[in-house]
């Protein structure tokens, strides 16, 4: 156990400190032209230490230093009430709720489509091209249309954003699930035939359980892109809440620190979501007796 932790922690720490080191380097490098200009304007003497210190203290830096972002995140999470419009937790929750809703819709839709495709030859031929085409259209192009159309029929708020997440996330689920439902060894299908098994029993006893590991792999991808979908869905609406909205207002006013802290929050959220799916999948495998 201790060995395992040591084996994991050290490489992670090494990577994190390397990224931090490079990041600080770029912070100084990218923010220095403006800072130097400033020094020259007010004709002050400056050393490299001054430059390093000052480039990390800009209010709207080109690239904020990691500690600036962390302090902004601290200020807008721990130091703010979660109901406040300036709380990152509030905004994360707004995005998270539509992510989860979209993810569940997409998963349900993906599984349903996969079942149709596997169980019906005609569906296999007719559905798959449409499903693939649906993913070749850039989401940025259809997101505003989905929002506008749904708004016109009186749907606004959570559902339109969730629809965009669902639109993105059903695809990996369908593809993975089709593969999973078709994954049983031919010998097992033959075995079921010798029992003269019905199609339904074949499905529930063999195809469905065989697809579980494929489903979870797809769900890990689907939940991450559901989050992307939810954020993209917040951009064209001029939404006032959500991580997407934070990104948008941040870029209106050149609040780079705010943008970066929203980005970091989104990344953290994505990691947490994928980890949650992973934990659920491990538990499922344990219950199914498939862990080794």
């Amino acid at each position: 156990m201790l060995f395992a932790i040591k084996n994991k922690v050290i490489p992670v720490l090494a990577v994190v400190s390397a990224i931090g080191f490079i990041w600080y380097g770029f912070t100084i490098f990218l923010n220095s032209p403006w800072q130097i200009q400033n020094y020259e304007k007010s004709s002050v003497e400056w050393s490299f230490v001054d430059l390093a210190k000052d480039t990390m203290a800009h209010e709207r830096p080109i690239l904020p230093a990691p500690h600036q972002i962390l302090s902004e995140i601290w200020q807008t999470t721990v130091k703010k009430k979660v109901t406040s419009k300036r709380s990152l937790i509030y905004h994360s929750w707004v995005t998270l709720s539509s992510t989860l809703m979209g993810f569940f819709m997409g998963t349900l839709m993906g599984i349903t489509l996969a079942i149709f495709i596997v169980e019906n030859k005609a569906m296999d031929k007719s559905l798959m091209p449409w499903i693939i085409t649906s993913q070749t259209i850039p989401i940025l192009a259809i997101a505003p249309m989905i929002i506008v159309v749904l708004n016109a029929v009186g749907l606004s708020g959570l559902l339109p954003k969730a629809m965009i997440s669902a639109y993105l996330s059903f695809f990996p689920i369908t593809v993975g699930m089709v593969k999973g439902l078709r994954s049983p060894d031919p010998i097992l299908i033959d075995l079921m035939k010798t029992y003269s098994s019905s199609r339904t029993k074949l499905f529930f006893s063999l195809r469905l359980p065989s697809s579980v590991s494929f489903l979870f792999t797809s769900m890990k991808i689907a939940i991450a892109i559901s989050l992307v979908g939810a954020i993209v869905g917040e951009l064209p609406t001029g939404a006032v809440a959500g991580l997407g909205a934070r990104l948008l207002t941040g870029s209106y006013y050149g609040q780079t620190i705010q943008i970066w802290s929203a980005l970091i929050s989104a990344a953290t959220l994505a990691a947490l979501l994928v980890i949650s799916v992973n934990i659920i999948s491990q538990l499922t495998f344990k219950i199914m007796g498939m862990q080794r």
């Binding site: 010998i187 033959d190 079921m192 010798t194 098994s197 019905s198 006893s205 579980v212 498939m290």
Partner: peptide, 26 residues
């Protein structure tokens, strides 16, 4: 008839007794 294949062809997610009861369930 009962058919025994060259490979055991057991379902990995079922215990031994659950595997044996598979035909009975069906």
């Amino acid at each position: 008839y009962g058919y025994v294949f060259q490979a055991p062809a057991l379902l990995q997610w079922r215990s031994i007794s659950q595997n044996i009861s598979l035909p009975l369930e069906i």
